[in-house]
Design a protein around this nucleic acid. Structure first.
Lengths: 221, 221
DNA sequence: TTCTGTGAATTTATTCACAGCA
DNA sequence: TGCTGTGAATAAATTCACAGAA
Protein backbone atom coordinates (compact mmCIF):
# COMPACT_ATOMS: atom_id res chain seq x y z
CA UNK A 1 0.00 0.00 0.00
CA UNK A 2 1.55 3.28 -1.08
CA UNK A 3 1.87 5.92 1.62
CA UNK A 4 -0.98 8.38 1.22
CA UNK A 5 -0.32 12.11 1.12
CA UNK A 6 -3.55 12.32 3.07
CA UNK A 7 -4.73 15.78 3.63
CA UNK A 8 -6.70 15.44 6.88
CA UNK A 9 -10.09 13.77 6.52
CA UNK A 10 -13.32 15.44 7.42
CA UNK A 11 -13.38 13.60 10.72
CA UNK A 12 -10.36 11.60 11.98
CA UNK A 13 -8.74 9.69 9.17
CA UNK A 14 -11.04 7.40 7.26
CA UNK A 15 -9.73 3.82 6.96
CA UNK A 16 -8.96 2.69 3.42
CA UNK A 17 -11.23 -0.35 3.65
CA UNK A 18 -14.10 1.96 4.57
CA UNK A 19 -13.55 4.00 1.42
CA UNK A 20 -13.40 0.85 -0.65
CA UNK A 21 -16.80 -0.18 0.72
CA UNK A 22 -18.59 3.08 -0.10
CA UNK A 23 -19.13 2.26 -3.79
CA UNK A 24 -20.45 -1.09 -2.70
CA UNK A 25 -23.08 0.56 -0.53
CA UNK A 26 -23.98 2.80 -3.42
CA UNK A 27 -24.57 -0.25 -5.61
CA UNK A 28 -26.91 -1.85 -3.11
CA UNK A 29 -29.00 1.31 -3.10
CA UNK A 30 -30.07 0.54 -6.64
CA UNK A 31 -32.06 -2.42 -5.36
CA UNK A 32 -33.71 -0.32 -2.66
CA UNK A 33 -34.60 2.50 -5.03
CA UNK A 34 -37.32 0.28 -6.47
CA UNK A 35 -38.88 -0.37 -3.08
CA UNK A 36 -40.93 2.54 -1.89
CA UNK A 37 -39.90 2.54 1.73
CA UNK A 38 -38.15 5.79 2.58
CA UNK A 39 -35.99 4.30 5.29
CA UNK A 40 -33.25 1.67 5.27
CA UNK A 41 -31.61 0.04 8.29
CA UNK A 42 -27.96 -0.89 8.71
CA UNK A 43 -29.11 -4.49 8.83
CA UNK A 44 -30.78 -4.31 5.43
CA UNK A 45 -27.89 -2.48 3.90
CA UNK A 46 -25.56 -5.05 5.41
CA UNK A 47 -27.53 -7.93 3.93
CA UNK A 48 -27.61 -6.31 0.50
CA UNK A 49 -23.91 -5.58 0.42
CA UNK A 50 -22.61 -8.62 2.25
CA UNK A 51 -21.07 -6.63 5.08
CA UNK A 52 -21.56 -6.83 8.86
CA UNK A 53 -24.21 -4.35 10.18
CA UNK A 54 -21.89 -2.88 12.83
CA UNK A 55 -19.37 -2.26 10.09
CA UNK A 56 -21.99 -0.49 8.01
CA UNK A 57 -22.90 1.80 10.90
CA UNK A 58 -19.28 2.52 11.72
CA UNK A 59 -18.46 3.25 8.08
CA UNK A 60 -21.36 5.66 7.70
CA UNK A 61 -20.71 7.33 11.04
CA UNK A 62 -17.24 8.39 9.87
CA UNK A 63 -18.96 10.91 7.67
CA UNK A 64 -21.45 12.32 10.16
CA UNK A 65 -24.61 11.21 11.90
CA UNK A 66 -27.25 10.90 9.28
CA UNK A 67 -29.23 8.05 10.71
CA UNK A 68 -32.15 8.31 13.15
CA UNK A 69 -31.85 6.17 16.26
CA UNK A 70 -34.68 3.71 16.48
CA UNK A 71 -35.60 4.32 12.86
CA UNK A 72 -32.78 3.86 10.39
CA UNK A 73 -31.35 5.91 7.54
CA UNK A 74 -33.44 8.05 5.25
CA UNK A 75 -32.80 6.46 1.92
CA UNK A 76 -32.72 9.57 -0.25
CA UNK A 77 -30.51 11.47 2.17
CA UNK A 78 -28.10 8.57 2.45
CA UNK A 79 -27.87 8.13 -1.30
CA UNK A 80 -27.23 11.84 -1.82
CA UNK A 81 -24.69 11.99 1.01
CA UNK A 82 -22.84 8.98 -0.34
CA UNK A 83 -22.57 10.45 -3.81
CA UNK A 84 -21.36 13.70 -2.37
CA UNK A 85 -18.68 11.94 -0.34
CA UNK A 86 -17.48 10.07 -3.41
CA UNK A 87 -17.52 13.28 -5.42
CA UNK A 88 -20.20 12.01 -7.79
CA UNK A 89 -22.23 15.23 -7.85
CA UNK A 90 -20.02 16.33 -10.72
CA UNK A 91 -19.02 14.66 -13.96
CA UNK A 92 -15.35 13.73 -14.03
CA UNK A 93 -13.41 14.01 -17.26
CA UNK A 94 -11.40 10.99 -18.31
CA UNK A 95 -8.71 10.25 -20.86
CA UNK A 96 -8.21 6.71 -22.04
CA UNK A 97 -4.77 5.77 -23.28
CA UNK A 98 -4.47 2.66 -25.39
CA UNK A 99 -7.21 1.88 -27.89
CA UNK A 100 -6.24 -1.75 -28.27
CA UNK A 101 -8.51 -4.57 -27.24
CA UNK A 102 -8.89 -3.64 -23.61
CA UNK A 103 -9.04 0.10 -24.31
CA UNK A 104 -11.67 -0.29 -27.00
CA UNK A 105 -13.58 -2.54 -24.68
CA UNK A 106 -13.54 0.07 -21.97
CA UNK A 107 -14.72 2.69 -24.45
CA UNK A 108 -17.62 0.57 -25.58
CA UNK A 109 -18.40 -0.69 -22.11
CA UNK A 110 -21.15 1.56 -20.87
CA UNK A 111 -20.27 1.20 -17.20
CA UNK A 112 -18.18 4.34 -16.85
CA UNK A 113 -20.73 6.59 -18.54
CA UNK A 114 -23.52 4.99 -16.54
CA UNK A 115 -21.67 5.78 -13.32
CA UNK A 116 -21.39 9.39 -14.43
CA UNK A 117 -17.91 9.54 -15.90
CA UNK A 118 -17.19 11.15 -19.23
CA UNK A 119 -14.47 9.83 -21.52
CA UNK A 120 -13.31 13.00 -23.25
CA UNK A 121 -10.50 11.64 -25.37
CA UNK A 122 -8.65 8.48 -26.29
CA UNK A 123 -5.04 8.09 -27.34
CA UNK A 124 -3.13 5.45 -29.26
CA UNK A 125 0.27 5.04 -30.86
CA UNK A 126 -1.15 3.24 -33.90
CA UNK A 127 -1.43 5.85 -36.73
CA UNK A 128 -4.18 3.84 -38.40
CA UNK A 129 -6.43 4.47 -35.39
CA UNK A 130 -5.63 8.13 -34.92
CA UNK A 131 -8.27 10.57 -36.13
CA UNK A 132 -11.13 8.09 -35.89
CA UNK A 133 -13.94 8.17 -33.40
CA UNK A 134 -15.11 5.28 -31.30
CA UNK A 135 -18.35 5.62 -29.38
CA UNK A 136 -18.20 9.33 -30.07
CA UNK A 137 -14.73 9.61 -28.60
CA UNK A 138 -11.94 10.98 -30.79
CA UNK A 139 -8.71 9.03 -30.92
CA UNK A 140 -5.55 11.14 -30.80
CA UNK A 141 -1.90 10.33 -31.29
CA UNK A 142 -0.11 9.67 -28.02
CA UNK A 143 2.13 12.77 -28.22
CA UNK A 144 -1.04 14.87 -28.15
CA UNK A 145 -1.69 13.84 -24.54
CA UNK A 146 -0.15 16.95 -23.06
CA UNK A 147 -2.13 19.39 -25.18
CA UNK A 148 -5.47 17.60 -25.18
CA UNK A 149 -5.46 16.80 -21.48
CA UNK A 150 -4.83 20.46 -20.71
CA UNK A 151 -7.32 21.86 -23.17
CA UNK A 152 -10.09 19.57 -22.10
CA UNK A 153 -9.18 19.88 -18.42
CA UNK A 154 -9.05 16.11 -18.06
CA UNK A 155 -8.66 14.97 -14.47
CA UNK A 156 -8.35 11.19 -14.58
CA UNK A 157 -6.33 8.98 -16.90
CA UNK A 158 -7.17 5.37 -17.61
CA UNK A 159 -4.20 3.33 -18.82
CA UNK A 160 -4.91 0.38 -21.06
CA UNK A 161 -1.49 0.08 -22.65
CA UNK A 162 1.12 -2.71 -22.44
CA UNK A 163 3.16 -2.75 -19.23
CA UNK A 164 6.23 -1.73 -21.20
CA UNK A 165 4.57 1.56 -22.20
CA UNK A 166 2.74 2.32 -18.97
CA UNK A 167 5.39 4.33 -17.13
CA UNK A 168 6.14 6.48 -20.16
CA UNK A 169 2.45 7.25 -20.61
CA UNK A 170 1.99 7.92 -16.90
CA UNK A 171 4.85 10.42 -17.06
CA UNK A 172 3.19 12.21 -19.94
CA UNK A 173 -0.12 12.37 -18.12
CA UNK A 174 1.48 13.66 -14.95
CA UNK A 175 3.26 16.26 -17.00
CA UNK A 176 -0.05 17.28 -18.54
CA UNK A 177 -1.50 17.83 -15.08
CA UNK A 178 -3.66 14.75 -14.58
CA UNK A 179 -4.62 14.16 -10.95
CA UNK A 180 -5.36 10.44 -10.84
CA UNK A 181 -4.62 7.30 -12.84
CA UNK A 182 -6.47 4.01 -13.12
CA UNK A 183 -3.86 1.57 -14.37
CA UNK A 184 -4.84 -1.63 -16.13
CA UNK A 185 -1.25 -2.48 -17.03
CA UNK A 186 0.27 -5.16 -14.81
CA UNK A 187 3.05 -3.04 -13.40
CA UNK A 188 3.85 -0.58 -10.63
CA UNK A 189 3.88 3.08 -11.63
CA UNK A 190 6.10 5.74 -10.13
CA UNK A 191 4.41 9.14 -9.91
CA UNK A 192 4.68 12.24 -7.70
CA UNK A 193 2.79 11.75 -4.47
CA UNK A 194 0.23 14.38 -5.43
CA UNK A 195 -1.03 12.01 -8.15
CA UNK A 196 -3.23 9.09 -7.16
CA UNK A 197 -2.78 5.69 -8.75
CA UNK A 198 -5.02 2.69 -8.55
CA UNK A 199 -4.13 -0.52 -10.29
CA UNK A 200 -6.53 -3.10 -11.65
CA UNK A 201 -4.86 -6.26 -12.85
CA UNK A 202 -7.38 -8.60 -14.40
CA UNK A 203 -5.07 -11.59 -14.58
CA UNK A 204 -4.23 -11.16 -10.89
CA UNK A 205 -7.88 -11.49 -10.02
CA UNK A 206 -8.01 -14.86 -11.74
CA UNK A 207 -4.79 -15.89 -10.03
CA UNK A 208 -6.31 -15.03 -6.67
CA UNK A 209 -9.09 -17.49 -7.48
CA UNK A 210 -6.75 -20.20 -8.73
CA UNK A 211 -4.76 -19.96 -5.51
CA UNK A 212 -7.81 -21.16 -3.60
CA UNK A 213 -8.80 -23.71 -6.23
CA UNK A 214 -5.31 -25.17 -6.18
CA UNK A 215 -5.31 -25.24 -2.40
CA UNK A 216 -8.59 -27.10 -2.23
CA UNK A 217 -7.27 -29.57 -4.85
CA UNK A 218 -4.23 -30.18 -2.64
CA UNK A 219 -6.28 -30.68 0.48
CA UNK A 220 -8.54 -33.22 -1.16
CA UNK A 221 -5.68 -35.52 -2.04
CA UNK B 1 -15.22 -9.54 3.30
CA UNK B 2 -17.11 -12.81 2.68
CA UNK B 3 -16.44 -15.56 5.18
CA UNK B 4 -14.04 -17.99 3.62
CA UNK B 5 -14.72 -21.75 3.69
CA UNK B 6 -10.98 -22.03 4.10
CA UNK B 7 -9.74 -25.53 4.08
CA UNK B 8 -6.62 -25.39 6.27
CA UNK B 9 -3.61 -23.71 4.63
CA UNK B 10 -0.30 -25.37 4.06
CA UNK B 11 1.16 -23.65 7.07
CA UNK B 12 -1.01 -21.71 9.56
CA UNK B 13 -3.65 -19.74 7.72
CA UNK B 14 -2.36 -17.41 5.07
CA UNK B 15 -3.67 -13.83 5.42
CA UNK B 16 -5.84 -12.66 2.54
CA UNK B 17 -3.65 -9.61 1.85
CA UNK B 18 -0.68 -11.91 1.46
CA UNK B 19 -2.50 -13.91 -1.20
CA UNK B 20 -3.49 -10.72 -2.98
CA UNK B 21 0.17 -9.71 -3.11
CA UNK B 22 1.44 -12.93 -4.67
CA UNK B 23 0.40 -12.03 -8.23
CA UNK B 24 2.07 -8.70 -7.72
CA UNK B 25 5.37 -10.38 -6.87
CA UNK B 26 4.98 -12.55 -9.92
CA UNK B 27 4.61 -9.45 -12.10
CA UNK B 28 7.78 -7.89 -10.75
CA UNK B 29 9.67 -11.05 -11.67
CA UNK B 30 9.17 -10.18 -15.32
CA UNK B 31 11.51 -7.23 -14.92
CA UNK B 32 14.14 -9.36 -13.19
CA UNK B 33 13.95 -12.13 -15.78
CA UNK B 34 15.83 -9.84 -18.16
CA UNK B 35 18.64 -9.26 -15.73
CA UNK B 36 20.97 -12.16 -15.56
CA UNK B 37 21.58 -12.24 -11.85
CA UNK B 38 20.33 -15.52 -10.42
CA UNK B 39 19.51 -14.11 -7.00
CA UNK B 40 17.01 -11.51 -5.84
CA UNK B 41 16.76 -9.94 -2.39
CA UNK B 42 13.62 -9.04 -0.47
CA UNK B 43 14.72 -5.43 -0.75
CA UNK B 44 14.86 -5.52 -4.55
CA UNK B 45 11.57 -7.37 -4.78
CA UNK B 46 10.09 -4.84 -2.39
CA UNK B 47 11.26 -1.91 -4.48
CA UNK B 48 9.90 -3.45 -7.66
CA UNK B 49 6.51 -4.23 -6.23
CA UNK B 50 6.09 -1.23 -3.96
CA UNK B 51 5.88 -3.28 -0.77
CA UNK B 52 7.90 -3.16 2.46
CA UNK B 53 10.85 -5.64 2.51
CA UNK B 54 9.83 -7.17 5.85
CA UNK B 55 6.40 -7.76 4.38
CA UNK B 56 7.91 -9.48 1.37
CA UNK B 57 9.94 -11.82 3.57
CA UNK B 58 6.99 -12.58 5.80
CA UNK B 59 4.74 -13.25 2.81
CA UNK B 60 7.22 -15.63 1.21
CA UNK B 61 8.00 -17.36 4.49
CA UNK B 62 4.36 -18.42 4.84
CA UNK B 63 5.02 -20.89 2.07
CA UNK B 64 8.31 -22.32 3.27
CA UNK B 65 11.92 -21.20 3.55
CA UNK B 66 13.25 -20.83 0.07
CA UNK B 67 15.64 -17.99 0.63
CA UNK B 68 19.29 -18.27 1.66
CA UNK B 69 20.34 -16.20 4.63
CA UNK B 70 22.98 -13.69 3.72
CA UNK B 71 22.31 -14.24 0.01
CA UNK B 72 18.71 -13.77 -1.05
CA UNK B 73 16.25 -15.80 -3.07
CA UNK B 74 17.16 -17.88 -6.09
CA UNK B 75 15.21 -16.24 -8.80
CA UNK B 76 14.19 -19.30 -10.81
CA UNK B 77 13.21 -21.27 -7.73
CA UNK B 78 11.14 -18.40 -6.41
CA UNK B 79 9.36 -17.89 -9.71
CA UNK B 80 8.55 -21.59 -10.00
CA UNK B 81 7.43 -21.81 -6.39
CA UNK B 82 5.17 -18.80 -6.77
CA UNK B 83 3.50 -20.21 -9.84
CA UNK B 84 2.99 -23.49 -8.10
CA UNK B 85 1.40 -21.79 -5.10
CA UNK B 86 -0.98 -19.86 -7.35
CA UNK B 87 -1.81 -23.05 -9.26
CA UNK B 88 -0.34 -21.72 -12.48
CA UNK B 89 1.44 -24.92 -13.46
CA UNK B 90 -1.75 -25.98 -15.19
CA UNK B 91 -4.01 -24.25 -17.68
CA UNK B 92 -7.36 -23.32 -16.17
CA UNK B 93 -10.48 -23.56 -18.32
CA UNK B 94 -12.72 -20.54 -18.37
CA UNK B 95 -16.23 -19.75 -19.56
CA UNK B 96 -17.17 -16.20 -20.35
CA UNK B 97 -20.81 -15.24 -19.99
CA UNK B 98 -21.98 -12.10 -21.74
CA UNK B 99 -20.52 -11.26 -25.14
CA UNK B 100 -21.54 -7.61 -24.98
CA UNK B 101 -19.04 -4.80 -24.93
CA UNK B 102 -17.19 -5.81 -21.82
CA UNK B 103 -17.36 -9.52 -22.61
CA UNK B 104 -16.08 -9.05 -26.13
CA UNK B 105 -13.38 -6.86 -24.77
CA UNK B 106 -12.28 -9.52 -22.35
CA UNK B 107 -12.25 -12.08 -25.17
CA UNK B 108 -10.09 -9.91 -27.35
CA UNK B 109 -7.92 -8.73 -24.49
CA UNK B 110 -4.92 -10.99 -24.58
CA UNK B 111 -4.18 -10.73 -20.86
CA UNK B 112 -5.94 -13.88 -19.73
CA UNK B 113 -4.35 -16.08 -22.38
CA UNK B 114 -0.97 -14.52 -21.70
CA UNK B 115 -1.30 -15.36 -18.02
CA UNK B 116 -2.04 -18.97 -18.98
CA UNK B 117 -5.82 -19.09 -18.86
CA UNK B 118 -7.87 -20.65 -21.64
CA UNK B 119 -11.29 -19.29 -22.54
CA UNK B 120 -13.07 -22.43 -23.70
CA UNK B 121 -16.51 -21.05 -24.43
CA UNK B 122 -18.55 -17.87 -24.41
CA UNK B 123 -22.28 -17.47 -23.85
CA UNK B 124 -24.81 -14.81 -24.74
CA UNK B 125 -28.57 -14.40 -24.77
CA UNK B 126 -28.56 -12.54 -28.08
CA UNK B 127 -29.48 -15.09 -30.82
CA UNK B 128 -27.67 -13.03 -33.45
CA UNK B 129 -24.39 -13.70 -31.67
CA UNK B 130 -24.93 -17.38 -30.99
CA UNK B 131 -23.03 -19.77 -33.24
CA UNK B 132 -20.33 -17.28 -34.16
CA UNK B 133 -16.76 -17.40 -33.09
CA UNK B 134 -14.77 -14.55 -31.61
CA UNK B 135 -11.02 -14.90 -31.22
CA UNK B 136 -11.46 -18.59 -31.85
CA UNK B 137 -14.01 -18.94 -29.06
CA UNK B 138 -17.45 -20.28 -29.94
CA UNK B 139 -20.45 -18.35 -28.64
CA UNK B 140 -23.28 -20.47 -27.28
CA UNK B 141 -26.80 -19.66 -26.17
CA UNK B 142 -27.05 -19.07 -22.44
CA UNK B 143 -29.17 -22.18 -21.75
CA UNK B 144 -26.28 -24.29 -23.06
CA UNK B 145 -24.18 -23.31 -20.04
CA UNK B 146 -24.96 -26.45 -18.12
CA UNK B 147 -24.06 -28.84 -20.91
CA UNK B 148 -21.01 -27.03 -22.28
CA UNK B 149 -19.47 -26.32 -18.89
CA UNK B 150 -19.76 -29.98 -18.00
CA UNK B 151 -18.52 -31.33 -21.30
CA UNK B 152 -15.52 -29.02 -21.44
CA UNK B 153 -14.84 -29.42 -17.72
CA UNK B 154 -14.78 -25.66 -17.27
CA UNK B 155 -13.62 -24.61 -13.82
CA UNK B 156 -13.94 -20.83 -13.71
CA UNK B 157 -16.74 -18.58 -14.91
CA UNK B 158 -16.27 -14.95 -15.85
CA UNK B 159 -19.47 -12.91 -15.67
CA UNK B 160 -19.74 -9.89 -17.94
CA UNK B 161 -23.52 -9.59 -17.93
CA UNK B 162 -25.79 -6.81 -16.59
CA UNK B 163 -26.29 -6.84 -12.82
CA UNK B 164 -29.92 -7.85 -13.36
CA UNK B 165 -28.83 -11.10 -15.01
CA UNK B 166 -25.81 -11.91 -12.88
CA UNK B 167 -27.47 -13.96 -10.13
CA UNK B 168 -29.41 -16.06 -12.63
CA UNK B 169 -26.26 -16.81 -14.61
CA UNK B 170 -24.29 -17.54 -11.43
CA UNK B 171 -26.97 -20.06 -10.43
CA UNK B 172 -26.67 -21.79 -13.80
CA UNK B 173 -22.90 -21.95 -13.51
CA UNK B 174 -23.04 -23.32 -10.00
CA UNK B 175 -25.53 -25.91 -11.17
CA UNK B 176 -23.15 -26.86 -13.98
CA UNK B 177 -20.41 -27.48 -11.42
CA UNK B 178 -18.23 -24.41 -11.82
CA UNK B 179 -15.81 -23.88 -8.92
CA UNK B 180 -15.10 -20.16 -9.05
CA UNK B 181 -16.59 -16.99 -10.49
CA UNK B 182 -15.01 -13.68 -11.46
CA UNK B 183 -17.89 -11.23 -11.44
CA UNK B 184 -17.73 -7.98 -13.38
CA UNK B 185 -21.37 -7.14 -12.68
CA UNK B 186 -21.80 -4.50 -9.96
CA UNK B 187 -23.76 -6.68 -7.57
CA UNK B 188 -23.34 -9.19 -4.76
CA UNK B 189 -23.78 -12.83 -5.76
CA UNK B 190 -25.19 -15.54 -3.53
CA UNK B 191 -23.57 -18.93 -4.10
CA UNK B 192 -22.91 -22.08 -2.05
CA UNK B 193 -19.84 -21.64 0.10
CA UNK B 194 -17.94 -24.24 -1.89
CA UNK B 195 -17.90 -21.81 -4.82
CA UNK B 196 -15.48 -18.89 -4.78
CA UNK B 197 -16.54 -15.47 -5.97
CA UNK B 198 -14.42 -12.46 -6.66
CA UNK B 199 -15.94 -9.22 -7.80
CA UNK B 200 -14.33 -6.59 -9.98
CA UNK B 201 -16.32 -3.40 -10.29
CA UNK B 202 -14.66 -1.03 -12.71
CA UNK B 203 -16.83 1.96 -11.85
CA UNK B 204 -16.04 1.45 -8.14
CA UNK B 205 -12.37 1.76 -8.89
CA UNK B 206 -12.95 5.18 -10.43
CA UNK B 207 -15.15 6.15 -7.50
CA UNK B 208 -12.38 5.23 -5.12
CA UNK B 209 -10.17 7.72 -6.97
CA UNK B 210 -12.80 10.45 -7.06
CA UNK B 211 -13.25 10.14 -3.31
CA UNK B 212 -9.69 11.32 -2.84
CA UNK B 213 -9.86 13.92 -5.59
CA UNK B 214 -13.00 15.36 -4.05
CA UNK B 215 -11.44 15.35 -0.62
CA UNK B 216 -8.38 17.23 -1.81
CA UNK B 217 -10.65 19.74 -3.57
CA UNK B 218 -12.49 20.29 -0.29
CA UNK B 219 -9.31 20.74 1.70
CA UNK B 220 -7.92 23.32 -0.70
CA UNK B 221 -10.87 25.62 -0.26
C1' DT C 1 29.38 -9.03 6.50
C1' DT C 2 24.78 -9.67 4.34
C1' DC C 3 20.25 -10.95 4.09
C1' DT C 4 16.60 -14.33 5.58
C1' DG C 5 13.10 -15.94 8.91
C1' DT C 6 10.44 -14.83 12.68
C1' DG C 7 8.90 -13.65 17.43
C1' DA C 8 7.43 -9.34 19.58
C1' DA C 9 5.63 -4.70 19.25
C1' DT C 10 2.79 -1.77 16.94
C1' DT C 11 -0.70 -0.24 14.07
C1' DT C 12 -5.00 -0.94 11.85
C1' DA C 13 -9.51 -2.96 11.19
C1' DT C 14 -13.53 -5.51 12.73
C1' DT C 15 -16.88 -6.87 15.88
C1' DC C 16 -19.18 -6.64 20.22
C1' DA C 17 -22.23 -4.69 23.32
C1' DC C 18 -24.66 -1.13 25.14
C1' DA C 19 -25.96 3.86 26.11
C1' DG C 20 -28.97 7.12 24.11
C1' DC C 21 -32.57 8.83 21.29
C1' DA C 22 -37.13 8.50 18.52
C1' DT D 1 -39.42 -1.03 21.46
C1' DG D 2 -35.99 -0.59 17.60
C1' DC D 3 -32.07 1.01 15.66
C1' DT D 4 -28.10 4.28 15.53
C1' DG D 5 -23.55 5.80 17.16
C1' DT D 6 -19.58 4.61 19.53
C1' DG D 7 -16.29 3.28 23.18
C1' DA D 8 -14.10 -1.06 24.44
C1' DA D 9 -12.61 -5.67 23.20
C1' DT D 10 -10.94 -8.53 19.84
C1' DA D 11 -8.78 -9.89 15.75
C1' DA D 12 -5.76 -9.16 11.97
C1' DA D 13 -2.04 -7.14 9.47
C1' DT D 14 2.16 -4.63 9.28
C1' DT D 15 6.51 -3.31 10.80
C1' DC D 16 10.39 -3.63 13.86
C1' DA D 17 14.43 -5.65 15.33
C1' DC D 18 17.41 -9.19 15.90
C1' DA D 19 19.07 -14.18 16.04
C1' DG D 20 21.08 -17.26 12.87
C1' DA D 21 22.97 -19.03 8.52
C1' DA D 22 26.15 -18.36 4.41
Amino acid sequence: MPKRTASPARKRNIPEPTIARLPRYLRSFVGFAHDHRPVISSKELAAASGINPAQVRKDLAYFGQFGQRGIGYDFKTLDAKMREILGLHKVWRIALVGAGNLGTALLQYGGFAKAGFKIEAAFDVDPSKVGWELEGVRIWATPAIRQVVREKKIEIGVLAVPASQAQRVADAMVDAGIRAILNFAPCVLTVPKSVLVRGVDLASELEHLTYFLEKSNKNEK
